[in-house]
């Protein structure tokens, strides 16, 4: 209600500057002046708004092009396929790539089933009421938990309490908890996009609710759910703080062989080389290279998701 009344007030005041004065008999030139002044204000303000949008684009471009320009020289086949050597001042980043893939895929294996099932409950089963509100509140607040707090939680719960130790498993579960709200959000959006007519048709044929969800709703929502999964993977791949205490270590000589191994990961490797290495300046090219690999991975996944989603929307509306 408040919003409605604000806008009504706004509408009233709007009619004053041009229209009101004109009618009270001032000369037309004045009115034209007001008109053109209003147009100029509009043009100036729109230029500001456009500038704001452009600043974002420039920021992204600067960061990406800087990393590409500095990083591409570091990247070659051996950089991608060999482990670091000489206390990480030379060599490649293979263990970090493997580690990041393990962690992000593991996270999605944890979060996807739980996230999709949560979304199904929220969108298909739950009736509006206190329970639904409580669950939503939980999800919203989970989404707002700082990543370092997830790290603390992972340390206290998975690593220490459940005695998983610093391991891939603990890291995947921590990252899974962190990506859960992302998955729920996109899965819910996908379910919302499934027309109600599908549900009605199926129920009208005497299908049960679960048959309807399983055979009609979920297949129709699948592409949207997959988009969300891709975004979840990319989110998990880029996180550092949650894995600092739960999965990642400075250096491991070999690739992991079990989910209870500790591992290296791209984001943590960047952090370590850039802040805690013995020769920060000497390993700059490795830092640039690692950062480039990470953003290619993360932005690549995002681009795939964005393009895929755009196609979906077009197909749905067109």
């Amino acid at each position: 209600m408040t919003d409605g009344s604000i806008s009504k007030k706004a509408l009233k005041s709007l009619s004053l500057p041009g229209g009101g004065r004109g009618r009270s008999g001032e000369n037309p030139g004045d009115r034209a002046g007001v008109q053109s002044r209003r147009k100029i204000i509009q043009r100036v303000m729109f230029a500001f708004f456009k500038a704001a949008a452009v600043i974002n684009a420039i920021a992204l471009m600067i960061i990406v092009s800087f990393l590409v320009a500095k990083g591409y020289r570091a990247i070659n086949w051996s950089f991608l396929t060999e482990p670091p050597i000489d206390s990480m001042t030379k060599g490649g980043i293979l263990p970090c790539i493997v580690g990041t893939l393990c962690l992000s895929l593991g996270a999605i294996i944890v979060a996807l089933p739980i996230g999709v099932a949560s979304a199904v409950y929220l969108h298909e089963y739950a009736r509006p009421g206190r329970v639904l509100r409580l669950i939503r509140l939980g999800i919203n607040n989970l989404a707002g938990v700082p990543s370092v707090v997830f790290g603390l939680f992972g340390l206290a719960f998975f690593v220490v309490y459940l005695q998983m130790g610093v391991s891939i498993l603990a890291g995947c579960l921590t990252l899974g908890a962190l990506t859960l709200p992302v998955i729920i959000g996109s899965a819910e959006e996908a379910l919302r996009a499934v027309p109600d007519t599908y549900r009605e048709a199926s129920l009208g044929l005497g299908a049960t609710k679960w048959q309807t969800i399983y055979r009609v709703v979920l297949p129709a929502a699948l592409p949207g759910v997959l988009t969300g999964a891709i975004l979840g993977i990319s989110r998990a791949a880029g996180e550092t703080a949650p894995i600092m205490f739960t999965a990642a270590v400075f250096f491991t000589p070999s690739l992991p062989t079990s989910i209870f191994d500790e591992i290296m990961a791209l984001p943590y490797h960047i952090y370590v080389l850039a802040t805690a290495g013995t020769e920060i300046e000497k390993t700059r090219h490795l830092q640039y290279g690692t950062a480039l690999v990470l953003i290619v991975l993360v932005l690549g996944l995002n681009l795939v998701a964005i393009i895929y989603r755009a196609r979906l929307r077009k197909r749905r509306t067109g």
Binding site: R235, G238, P267, I270, Y271, Q287, V298, N302
Partner: peptide
């Protein structure tokens, strides 16, 4: 995409 940039990269 700006939202997707890993924080460690922005920090770097």
């Amino acid at each position: 995409l700006l939202a997707a940039l890993p924080s460690v990269v922005i920090g770097f």
